[in-house]
Amino acid sequence: MFGQNVEIRTINLNSVRERNEVDVFLQKQDLILERDVEYTLAMYDEDRIVGTGSISGNVLKCIAIDPEYQGGGFSNKIISLLLNEQYYRGNTHLFIFTKPRNKKLFLDLGFYEITSVDNYVTLLENDPRGLRDFTENLKLQKHEGKVVSSIVMNCNPFTLGHRHLIETASKNSDVVHIFVVWEDRSVFPNEVRYKLIKAGVKHLDNVYVHRGKDYIISNSTFPSYFLKEKNAIVKIHTMLDVKIFGEFIAPALGINRRYVGEEKSDPVTNEYNLTMKELLKDYNIEVVEIPRIKNNEAAISASRVRELLRTDDFESLKQLVPQTTFEFLISDEAKTIIGNIKNDKK
């Protein structure tokens, strides 16, 4: 039909061949087709891919147009189709990670800048009131104190290790704000993780638990596709996450300290913690690392708990989680989740 000399097709993500074609095209633009994409479009001129874009959760990603086809309104077309797909999926609050040099394109398409990290990455959202509403809402939950601490945690699921971290923070602070990572990529769904944390800290009256929606950037959301900076990716992600935390979230709640679990054995998390420590100085936020507590010579961790669930070892498990979490794990509600853990071969 008139006006369309290219054809846009939906990629069958189960087809290795189709994924591969898109991936090869993206690599020419210094990107890759990320593993977590849920929906991918490609624009073809005859049988050659000349543009593509994808969706993952509430993020638009892996978007690229062949340089020869730029300026023809094709990127608007691809982004329009991705936006429509998102709306049909019920996702209306959307995000894009892009290179700062490309942000103009998205600013012209109804996106608004949240923040940028140097020349590396810009985060945009499609709601001009998104971040503003989020921080306004946080301000309503502000509690005065000299030491106001914060912990960002996933808790997949909530263990005695997590509780120890929170208790330590609680004892040494006037107020503690917990942000639960909301990205739903863990076996325990976000609402369950949130519920278990709340139940597990009920005895601490200066601890407040928040749903860490949208503006707590977990590393699973952060695109791994900035190929050229592959080695710096953890650092860039941390910089972005910390910048949003320091610029918007901390001031809204008056946060001046952040607690993290010590992570000497995991180089990625260790680097994250080191970078965070460095960067949060600029916002007058102190970072305190708390060593992990142990049980039978091994640190208590959520991954150990999941391992024990796989083998139905509830006796050992009881030593690692608070009573509230344990009760959930033996309830009917947990059966599907435990089933999923057992089915996951990795």
Partner: peptide, 19 residues
Amino acid sequence: KVGVAGTVESSDINIVIEP
């Protein structure tokens, strides 16, 4: 509920209406 129509292509307008 949230209702959306239109695109961000040239000569169009994308409109999102929320309660």
